[in-house]
Amino acid sequence: MVPISYHLILSGILFTIGVTGVLLRRNIIIIFMAIELMLNAVNLSFVALARHFGNMDGQIIVFFVMSVAAAEVAVGLAIILLVFRGRETVNADELNLMRW
């Protein structure tokens, strides 16, 4: 059997890949996908811990995380569409109106 730490390290690696994507890429859609990757990494650790402790609460939290992610994607992509219509760009560096 694989110990729980293996699952948690895999989850940490996936989360780190997501953070790296947010910091490295300038395309807002890809930044958004990296955020989805991070959410999934967290889901993975929830499911692994639920399995480890024999308690289903972790899986229910994953259910809620998924619905929040769906809501976030719907609103976020609508905002991206709106920004693109106004500014004709999806490069995060060019959207600097609210930058100090």
Partner: peptide, 17 residues
């Protein structure tokens, strides 16, 4: 509450788009 959140998201997305 999740149901309400999804409803808000749907309405928000339609209004924004």
């Amino acid at each position: 509450i999740t149901g309400i959140l999804l409803l808000v998201a749907v309405v928000g997305a339609v209004v924004l788009a």
